[in-house]
């Protein structure tokens, strides 16, 4: 089996040519673009549309990739390294978070080959606990903020929420956009909030949650992704996990295309985080295949791709054991947090 094309082809610079399809993005100064509601709205409306059926078909075709044996093992370990191990429940406690952090540091205590996860993701009031539990581990602390998950609060409250998280030691902030403002066409307000939150992050990395299940169309997902990237997002993220549908492979495809094109036009690299409903190794591998074949393998790194999940990790560990031993793992073979 050989792959047609080497890195030189797949990563040919597209700056000039892609720019023509994104009239105005590359040529104009981003700050002036986002400072004008009219120009911004026109720019977003001018982005190429997304055909729903075609997009879903491409996702379905990617899902037929058969990832077996060594490729599967590689993919499983890669997926583990990209997990934002998440707990976002009203019932969360300091104890729960500490347990989760222990799992994040060493998902497979008996096997040093297994990497730690990328981050632990919690509510702002539990950031300090996570920070403490993860010190020296290399695992980042991520916090949702901005009146997660609905985002229905004043900007001042949202910024205070962010401030709390950052002050408590969050490395990464997962904000939600104002979907109501987006859907009523108030894109200027959406981007202003993103810019303000980015500033409040004070160096912490910003993941912008689009809540694609509420945006409803792929056209909206693409526009919201560009809005987030123009506003300064380090990552665009699909979902809070609190709304159905959450992440899907077609939605991820649209986000991957957006970061690919944004990178071509502006030269700035933005990551993608998929979250919500990703429970099985098979699900995770499908996303990795989509990343591999849409933006290329250089996005297959935790600094550019994340899987927000909780139960996924144990399935990855079970599947990994199956790959190594040839036997299906039992449900009690891995720890339950």
């Amino acid at each position: 089996m050989q792959t047609v094309g080497d890195l030189g082809v797949r990563h040919a610079p597209l700056d000039d040519v892609v720019a023509s399809a994104y009239r105005g993005a590359a040529s104009s100064d981003v700050s002036s673009l986002i400072s004008s509601q009219d120009r911004l709205a026109r720019f977003l409306a001018g982005l190429p549309g997304v055909d729903q059926v075609g997009c879903e078909q491409r996702a379905a075709a990617l899902a037929t990739r058969s990832i077996k044996t060594t490729a599967k093992l590689t993919a499983i370990e890669l997926a583990i390294s990209m997990i934002d191990l998440t707990t976002l429940e009203g019932a969360d406690t300091h104890g729960k978070v500490r347990t989760l952090c222990a799992k994040a540091r060493r998902p497979e205590p008996t096997d040093d080959v297994v990497p730690h996860v990328a981050a632990v993701c919690v509510y702002p009031d539990l950031v300090a606990t996570a920070r403490h539990a993860l010190s020296g581990s290399g695992v980042a602390v991520a916090s949702v903020a901005t009146a997660f998950p609905s985002g229905r609060a004043s900007l001042a409250v949202k910024l205070a929420d962010v401030g709390d998280a950052v002050a408590a030691g969050a490395d990464e902030v997962d904000m939600v956009i104002d979907r109501g403002a987006f859907l009523q066409g108030d894109v200027g307000r959406v981007v202003e909030e993103i810019v303000a939150v980015k500033e409040a992050c004070a160096g912490a990395h910003l993941k912008v949650i689009l809540e694609t299940g509420e945006l409803a169309t792929y056209d909206n997902v693409r526009r919201a992704a560009w809005l987030a990237m123009l506003g300064g997002a380090d990552f665009v993220k699909t979902s809070t996990g609190k709304v159905t549908p959450a992440s899907t492979v077609p939605v991820a495809l649209v986000l991957l295309e957006a970061v690919r094109d944004f990178s071509s036009v502006t030269g700035r690299t933005v990551g993608v985080k998929v979250a919500g409903g990703i429970r099985t190794s098979k699900d995770a591998i499908r996303y990795l295949v989509a990343v591999n074949e849409t933006v290329g393998p250089e996005w297959l790194v935790a600094s550019r791709f994340r899987l927000g999940a909780s139960s996924l990790l144990n399935d990855l560990l079970r599947q990994r054991r199956k790959q190594l031993t040839g036997q299906y793992a039992g449900s009690d073979d891995v720890s339950v947090e």
Binding site: D51, Q52, V53
Partner: peptide, 8 residues
């Protein structure tokens, strides 16, 4: 015969 996807 004309085909067109049905999507939103």
């Amino acid at each position: 015969t004309v085909w067109h996807p049905i999507g939103s």
